[in-house]
Amino acid sequence: MNTPLPFLQNGVSQVCILVPKLEPVVEMYYKLFGIGPWQFYTYKKPFVKNMTYMGKPANYASRIALSYFGPTRIELIEPLEGESVYADFIREHGYGVHHFGLLVDDMQAALKQAEEAGLPMTMDGSGFGLDGDGHYAYLDTEKYLGITLELIERPKGRVKPEKVYPPEE
């Protein structure tokens, strides 16, 4: 591939941190920095309709909490079960910053570009939006860049969160 990949042209839209338990970390971000509100979701089937890990169908589960600091989304992930890039990372490094999320408009085109550049997809999930849209895909970039990159095609509409912190009044 002679053309540079376009994924970083719009900057990093998300920073993800793997944590052992969501609630204490969310409460600390809120208490120390006023970051919130946080929206909680459980990513597993059937909420995430299609999941793969290392090129094969997968069935992993994780709880996530989403908020913003400035224009950047912060995502906290608590892995629950199943083989995943999260479990791999924790085994190798412990908890901590796992990936930078990059927004893409066309996931299939982006994945083709990444593959052509020698960056295969390691894990993905899709179909979690209100209209069955939404797709995330992790690229095998840690060995080259020191961090994993996640491509994100955000859903047009999100399902109502399981909970919000602090609780809405």
Rank of each mutant, 00 (worst) to 15 (best):
H135N: 09
K163G: 06
V85Q: 10
D105G: 13
D140F: 05
D131R: 12
T52Y: 03
R73I: 14
V48A: 02
W38A: 09
Y43R: 03
A58G: 07
A114N: 04
I90N: 04
L8N: 12
H99L: 09
D133A: 09
R63H: 08
T141W: 10
A61E: 12
R73W: 10
P161Y: 01
D133F: 12
F100E: 10
M51L: 13
G125H: 01
R73P: 12
W38I: 10
L80D: 01
G70C: 02
D133H: 12
G55L: 07
V15L: 14
G34H: 01
L32H: 08
L18P: 00
G157H: 14
P71H: 08
D133E: 13
R63S: 12
P79D: 03
V104T: 12
E83Y: 02
R91F: 01
V164Q: 01
L145F: 15
V26R: 09
D124E: 13
I64G: 07
G36E: 04
A114C: 04
Q113W: 13
S126V: 07
N10W: 00
P167A: 10
K160D: 05
I77M: 12
K160Q: 07
R73G: 14
Y95M: 03
P155Q: 08
D140I: 05
E150S: 02
N59V: 06
P71Y: 03
K49Q: 14
P57S: 05
A110Y: 07
M28I: 01
D133N: 12
M51E: 11
A87W: 06
I90V: 14
M121V: 15
T122P: 06
T122D: 02
D131M: 07
K143W: 14
E78R: 02
